[in-house]
Amino acid sequence: MALDRKTVIDIATLARIGIDPDNVDDYASELSKILKFVAQMDQVDTEKVEPLTHPQDRQLRMRMDRVTETDQREGFQQLAPAVEAGLYLVPRVIE
């Protein structure tokens, strides 16, 4: 399927990737080519096939509900672009 400008902008917004308005047409054409390529999948009838989410159809293992991680907040927060009083800082959300 071919993507129009509006769809490209919507996808970029959902993906939280800012794109330059000048590049929207390029993205539309590139992404459309890829979608056309993957549409080859439609050659096969999969009506009665169950989706395979794990390569060996295994269920994920369950684990006991107990604390295994140690507190490393200080170390982790040293990596953050902005912290204060042990909290991560982001721009104001609510006025």
């Binding site: 993957v38 999948m41 999969t46 096939v49 169950e50 989706p51 395979l52 989410t53 390569p55």
Partner: peptide, 11 residues
């Protein structure tokens, strides 16, 4: 797309 691909993956 996604679900179709998962079905094909099984095949």
């Amino acid at each position: 797309y996604y679900n179709k691909a998962l079905k094909l993956r099984r095949l």
